[in-house]
Amino acid sequence: MPVLPGAEPYRHEGGEVGVLLCHGFTGSPQSLRPWAEYLAERGLTVSLPLLPGHGTRWEDMQVTGWQDWYAEVERELRSLLERCERVFVFGLSMGGALALRLAAKHGDAVAGLVLVNPGNKVHGLAAHALPVARHLVPSTKGIVSDIAKPGSEEIGYHRIPLHAAHSLRRFFRVVDAELPQVTQPLVVLHSPRDHVVPPADSARILGRVSSTDVTEILLEQSYHVATLDHDADRIFEESHAFIGRLAPSVGKEGTATGG
């Protein structure tokens, strides 16, 4: 299947500091593309992969699960580690959970994390019905474009494949159990008015990680897809400042391009 226009993966060869960006469940790289380009313009090496089953049609996602999505970001991480001295991992929604698992599994190879409205649990009564419902109904109404900013739209699926949702539920449980293994510097930016992931998910993550260098930022003007919303510039600036603090060579002459 051809990839939806705008949902293509994005890569940029920059300096010795790399950033891996992970998009969300049923979403696509389009939701993080402005963030990726912002970082690329500042001399960073950037990788924004398209997760398996995403960016085409929701039926393609029915035959994928969390192991496929995680394997893709892990491959990208290994590739960045071969080319860069330091690598940071950023994520939106489920992408935040993917980032957390990379941090738990790869330790010091991940220099730091920036998470935007990270998911930790599939909420609601429907979540408990998933093990059975997925065999009876193929999909349910989608969750794309939870954005406050007029005219800003997310490219993603308008249906949620229930087999994939069941796998996501299992994945969140796996990541939740591994949160104490996360020790890296961490920035969590979350929206009080998120209609997809409640603030409780960010609170749970902040309460269970072992990181000591932790920053929490509220995105008062945005909904779930904050990277395409009113607070996008703040997310970009805060994340770049975070990298600059932990990798001071960023942005200095002769280093931003790997020279």
Rank of each mutant, 00 (worst) to 15 (best):
E59A: 13
A99S: 15
V132K: 10
I147Q: 05
T140N: 09
E153Y: 13
A127H: 10
I147K: 00
L115C: 10
G124N: 05
A104M: 01
I155E: 00
F88N: 00
L102G: 04
R57C: 04
L80R: 00
A99N: 05
R86K: 11
E85C: 07
R75A: 13
S93K: 09
S139A: 15
P150H: 06
R75H: 08
H135Q: 13
D68G: 03
L77T: 00
G55C: 02
K121V: 07
E59F: 07
A99G: 15
G95H: 02
S145T: 14
G91I: 09
G124Y: 06
P49K: 09
A111E: 09
W58H: 15
V63Q: 12
L102W: 03
G53Q: 12
P150W: 04
V144D: 10
D60G: 13
G96V: 04
L125A: 08
P118F: 05
V114F: 11
L77K: 00
G96A: 03
A97E: 01
G53E: 10
R134G: 07
G53Y: 12
L77H: 00
T64V: 09
A97T: 01
A111D: 04
E59I: 10
M61D: 14
G96H: 00
G96R: 03
P131K: 10
E85I: 03
Y70S: 00
R86S: 13
V87D: 04
S152F: 07
S79Q: 12
A99V: 05
L77D: 00
G107R: 10
I143N: 14
S139E: 15
T64F: 09
N120C: 08
D146R: 10
G142S: 08
S152Q: 12
E72G: 01
S152G: 08
M61S: 15
K105Q: 14
A109H: 09
Q67Y: 10
L113W: 04
L125G: 13
A103E: 02
G65F: 06
G151P: 03
V73N: 01
T140Q: 12
L92S: 14
A109F: 01
H123G: 08
Y157G: 11
F90R: 01
S145V: 08
H135G: 14
S145F: 04
P49Y: 05
L115S: 05
A109G: 11
M94W: 01
P49R: 11
L81A: 14
P49E: 08
E154Y: 03
V122G: 10
L125R: 13
M61T: 08
L77V: 00
P138H: 02
P131E: 14
D68T: 01
D108A: 11
P49F: 07
H54G: 07
P150N: 04
W66N: 11
P138A: 02
H128V: 07
G95Y: 02
E74W: 02
L100K: 02
S93N: 10
P131A: 06
F90A: 15
L125Y: 11
P131G: 11
K121R: 15
T140G: 14
E85V: 02
R78C: 08
T140M: 13
L50Y: 07
S139P: 06
P52S: 06
V122M: 12
K141G: 14
L92D: 06
P52Q: 08
C84D: 12
T56V: 05
G65C: 06
P131H: 12
L80H: 00
G55M: 02
R86M: 09
E59L: 14
